[in-house]
Write a protein that binds this DNA or RNA. Structure first.
Lengths: 344, 344
DNA sequence: ATCGATGATTTCAACGTGGCAATACCTGCT
DNA sequence: AGCAGGTATTGCCACGTTGAAATCATCGAT
């Protein structure tokens, strides 16, 4: 049981050298049809499979890339991870997924490659780590950052234009006549700047409409889960002035807010409009369905892998860091437009 | 840039042999405090990291296990994957995730280890592949099946008691006075037997209550997504007799059904009660929140990894296949009980 | 018959690591 | 001084694969 045959075994059985077997497996050199067939038979009979560890040792590459995300159970990251795994397979790479849980130590450990280096490259969506922490790693390993920018210009970056997208979402609410618009999702405790950018877009849109953003309506959250959104919404509803619209920095926050509104008997979108961010599957099927900013996730996956491929296969590590802006669009659904009910 | 130092480099710098450096790294032999410190300094200065490919080649193990699931973007699998990754890290294993998309070829390719073997073991949740296909693989690689049973007894299996759980869910609906109970989620096109087991539990509960299960109320779906649930619900509402309750074989199906009910103006739970299966996060925050069968996902992750560990570290591959039944419980929420509204 | 060219196959070495056994060194004892 | 009984360190090899270069065979042209 659990027998493993090597090139040598196959070679012995086929009566050729190990190198010839290697050539057959890789198609790397010319091999006569006759020999090829004989070798192939031996391979099949022995059930030979190449040993990837040996191959990697020789080649200096593993064919494995890492994906570091805060958590896999959150729909946005799960969807993104799925797309990345697919896209990686298309390039015959395997993906190792690591969850950092927004833990700075975990993110750092991953980046420094503690305990050994397996990955040819790394795609990371940093939360706890600031851009400066990423600098060292990017020097020794191709790194693509999702969302966060690397100041030294050592790693590529793929992200949506958060300010513009948030502005657009807020402007949509303004256009529908809302004036008392709160924002949920600030994360002052994290190094990550994404939330602040979205807040900036929200403020910008309000100011343009002649409205002064209320600081007490910039609601901070610990994480981006539904519970946090629910709690923030409850807080808003308990306030002296109640908003007539909410821009949540993630769909999960938005869905949590929606749940609280429903539980408190606040009618959405009549008494309260809600816009989310991410366009996760659940938002399409919530009641009412969720208006949201939809980043082109497939594009994120494709671009991130393209960046990685460029660096991994580049002879010198002299590529300038690219900063790719991903397309996004506002999808109007039931939480801002009463006319929308059916699922797409 | 992108320099990699090896044991040899460290050895040269510290003025010792490569073997001694190896000893320091692994703590495998006695090394004098003085030497250890000198070596450690050299390691730090050079930023040495052990080469895992070489280590694997030598040891015959990679420290990597595979996780094959149909799709990562589906919340149930995403949550489960997250738990498995966590649990694996606790055992210092890394997880490679592969999505089979319910594609028989993909599942088979993965199992036969086409293109080389990296994994020390595999946890697979088979859809397209029947149990018999799994037999060959399990002979050469430790395999744990999630849900499906291996007939030859070659692979371990971890699953909930689907029949009992479905029976329980249906009995709950009966206890609340429902009589016209439909089932959504049959998958006659798949080899996977899970759906059929849940259908069996549903039929059993109905019969015990003196009700003959209507075959036209066993609704088949292509996949377990919200859309499929929405479509099935629409079909039911268009029928001559309309059910007063629905048991959906997954939470996603249930949420899709809930969405359609809402869109059609059917009040849940007053006119229609709904029970799902999986206890995904979204169900806790839907409006109303979703009654569901909750399998102990953490237990699934722990047990699956325990099985794998047992086989990987077992000197002979002579362990009998274990068949572990995972605990589950019915969580009653808003879609069956009007008294429940708030999120837990 | 000899040479060159082309194609097919082989030999050699090396990637970085850890198991094994050998060696060097030290301490205390007779 | 010689020797047993440690402890600390080292050299050699193999794991399975592939790049580079060498060898062998074949065939057509001179």
């Amino acid at each position: 049981m659990r027998v493993r045959s090597s090139l040598k075994d196959v070679a012995a059985r086929a009566g050729v050298s190990a190198r010839t077997v290697s050539n057959v497996v890789n198609g790397s050199a010319r091999v006569s049809a006759e020999t090829r067939q004989r070798v192939q038979e031996a391979i099949d009979e022995l059930g030979y499979r190449p040993n990837l560890a040996a191959r990697s040792l020789r080649a200096g590459r593993t064919g494995i890339i890492g994906l570091a995300i805060p958590e896999l159970h959150s729909p946005y990251f799960a969807e993104l991870a799925g797309l990345l795994v697919d896209e990686a397979r298309r390039r015959s790479w395997t993906v190792i997924i690591d969850q950092t849980q927004g833990d700075a130590e975990a993110e750092r450990r991953l980046l420094t490659g503690d305990g050994g280096r397996v990955m040819d490259g790394l795609i990371i969506s940093p939360w706890a780590l600031g851009a400066r922490d990423l600098t060292d790693t990017a020097r020794s390993l191709p790194v693509v950052l999702l969302g966060e920018r690397s100041p030294q210009g050592l790693a590529d970056r793929v992200a949506v234009d958060n300010v513009a997208a948030a502005d657009e979402a807020t402007t949509h609410l303004l256009a529908r006549g809302h004036r008392r618009i709160a924002a949920i999702g600030l994360q002052p405790h994290l190094e990550n700047g994404t939330a602040e950018q979205r807040a900036e877009g929200w403020r910008r849109a309000l100011r343009r409409a002649g409205i002064t953003p209320r600081p007490d309506w910039e609601l901070a959250v610990t994480s981006l889960h539904r519970t946090d959104g629910a709690r923030a919404m409850a807080h808003l509803l308990d306030g002296d002035t109640v908003p007539d619209a909410v821009f949540a920095f993630s769909d999960e926050l938005a869905l949590g807010a929606l749940h609280t509104a429903h539980a408190r008997g606040v009618s959405v979108p009549r008494d309260l409009a809600i816009v989310g961010f991410d366009d996760i599957e659940d938002g399409r099927f919530s009641n009412p369905s969720l208006t949201t900013v939809s980043p082109d996730k497939r594009q994120i996956a494709q671009r991130a892998l393209q960046c990685l491929a460029d660096r991994i296969y580049s002879p010198q590590n002299d590529l300038p860091a690219s900063d790719l802006t991903i397309a996004h669009r506002l999808i109007v659904r039931g939480t801002t437009d009463p006319a929308v009910t059916a699922a797409p």
